Amino acid sequence: MTLRMRFFLIYLILVLGSCNEKVTNKDIIPPLGVSDWENRLVTQSNLDSLSSGQTYLSVYSEIYINTEKERIPLGATISIKNPNRNDTIFLTSAEYFETSGKLVRNYVKSPIYVAPMETIEIVIERLDKEGGSGANFLFDWRKEKQIFDPIFECLMLSSIGNRSFSFSTHGHNLVTDIP
């Protein structure tokens, strides 16, 4: 281990050791959008006549730094945006997969709506490492044929000491009009 690395580790231990303030559940603000999804439910039969699509979104709940053994956990905010002024979009599935492709969870059990010009969010907490370095989402959605597709984005961030990391990913539409 180099002298520079030793100094960094000592510095990191001192900084982390000096943090006495504990964060409790009451200090954490509930994720926007997720808490009110029960109020957004729609019936599947209302969606049968709509066009459908699927979007893939990369999400990293941790990244490697320096070596394969050193990882930094990341918090992630997934934004689901409706860019239409007058038309609603419907989300029928939001499946979160971990690096090896195993399903971690589906955030949408029944179809929900995203109102015109609205953004709803899913938050993956920094301490939630289930997804790993190659996590991803697969979204299924429905809309009127002539309107814009939904937009899916993810902002990931973390900090260690005085270093901060942030980057974003954008969804890729895979197919439209799924049978």
Rank of each mutant, 00 (worst) to 15 (best):
I65Q: 03
N25A: 11
Y107E: 13
D27V: 05
N25Y: 11
Q146R: 15
Y56N: 02
N46R: 15
V59R: 01
L157D: 07
I72E: 00
T55A: 11
G132T: 06
F97L: 06
L157T: 06
K81D: 13
K26M: 11
E70R: 13
F90C: 08
I112A: 05
E125P: 08
E21H: 14
I80F: 14
R105Q: 11
C19Y: 06
S110C: 04
K81A: 13
N66C: 07
W141L: 09
E118C: 10
G101L: 08
V104A: 02
R105I: 11
K109V: 13
I29M: 12
I72N: 01
N136D: 05
S58R: 12
F139Y: 11
T55V: 15
I151F: 05
S35P: 06
E38S: 14
I147T: 14
F148Q: 12
N84K: 09
L50Y: 11
K26A: 15
K129T: 05
I28S: 01
F137G: 03
E98C: 12
I29W: 00
V42A: 10
N84C: 15
G132S: 06
S35C: 07
Y56E: 01
S52C: 04
S45D: 13
L138H: 04
Y60T: 05
I80K: 13
S110Q: 12
R71Q: 07
G132Y: 02
A94C: 08
S45Y: 06
M117V: 10
I112D: 04
F97S: 04
N106P: 04
F137P: 00
P73W: 05
E70L: 15
Y113M: 13
M117K: 15
E70P: 02
R40G: 11
L91R: 04
E98Y: 00
T55D: 02
